[in-house]
Simulated scan of single mutants.
Amino acid sequence: MIEPKAPHLSNIELWRKWKEQKDIEAKKQLIELYLPLVDYVTNRMAIGLPKNVSKDDLASNGAMGLIDAIEKFDYQRGLQFETYASWRIRGAMIDGLRQGDWVPRSVREKAKKIEEAYQQLEQQYLRSVTDAEISSYLNISERDFQTMVQEIAVTTVVSLEDPIREEESETRMSMLIDEKAKNPDQTVQQFFLKETLVKGIERLTEKERIVISLFYYEELSLSEIAEVMSLSPSRISQLHSKAILRLRGALDKQKNQLMQN
């Protein structure tokens, strides 16, 4: 993660001037201070996206997300702004992508079918299911399954910001980020969400866990991960996609259980 350019005390003073005195100059300085976050998230988001997606458009939407984050952030809660802002920036970029309708509906439908297959089979077997089992469930060949995974690879880049259900506005990431003080229901939701993610990650294959770890925790690009694992970038993309689809299925299941209780 990118470190702020100014010392911590200077940041606090800027936040105080902006939030308590509505000092526009302080707001401008905060925007300039954290603007490198937009470049950072832009470069991360651009990985795996089609070439017709402009990085300039991503950055433009991201800048709006940064401004939104600065306006809504409560510096007195002791949270790390960089983490909060990164999700706001990413969310703004994803909103822009959605408005551009960059993923064909047919591709989204394929992704949903595979996600549901993972959810159903892993709930049934209580373990990580194989490509052969998924292919059989979908009534397609393993080769066709691999092709489908490759086709939907770009959709998994923004997976956590997709609505949990098409008719709902709540996203998976909204379960992770709380703009207001936590209430008991939110605390319970976060507890079960974390537990679900832990169990979901445990059911990933070894290679899928490595890809997830290197991409989201070590923050390597897919091409860098390919070099580390001595695999092709397309293979890394497939592993990433399958891991995300498994986790999305697990999160959907948890959401259903929370709604029933």
Rank of each mutant, 00 (worst) to 15 (best):
Q76L: 05
I134A: 00
S159T: 09
L231W: 09
M229W: 00
S10E: 15
R203E: 05
I114V: 11
L37T: 12
K28D: 00
L239N: 11
N256F: 08
Q257C: 00
L79H: 07
V228M: 07
Q76W: 07
L245K: 05
Y34H: 09
D95M: 12
Q124D: 08
L138M: 05
S141E: 04
E195V: 07
R105H: 04
S230M: 11
G249A: 01
V41T: 10
D23P: 15
K194E: 02
N52M: 11
L37N: 07
K253Q: 07
N43P: 09
T130K: 11
F192M: 07
F73T: 10
Y125G: 01
L247F: 03
L66D: 02
T205W: 08
Y137E: 13
Y217W: 13
I12C: 03
M64H: 12
F73N: 06
S60D: 13
F73Q: 09
R108D: 03
L126C: 00
P104I: 06
K19A: 04
V157L: 06
V107T: 13
L258E: 04
I164C: 00
K255R: 14
M1E: 09
E208D: 02
E206C: 06
A46D: 12
P4K: 12
F81D: 07
E133N: 05
E167I: 11
Y75F: 14
Q190M: 14
E20M: 10
E20F: 05
I47K: 10
Q238D: 05
L160D: 03
L35F: 07
Q99V: 00
P4S: 05
F73L: 08
E170V: 13
P184L: 10
S234E: 14
N261A: 04
K255F: 09
M259A: 00
Y217G: 03
S141W: 12
A117L: 07
Q120H: 08
G100H: 15
F73S: 03
K55V: 06
A85W: 01
K194I: 00
R44Q: 12
E179L: 15
Q124P: 14
E32L: 06
F81T: 13
D74Q: 15
L204H: 02
S136V: 14
D57F: 13
V53Q: 03
T155Q: 01
S169V: 09
P36Y: 04
E133C: 07
E168N: 08
S141V: 14
Q186D: 08
T42R: 09
M175T: 12
E142A: 03
Q186M: 05
R105M: 01
P36Q: 05
S10M: 14
I2M: 06
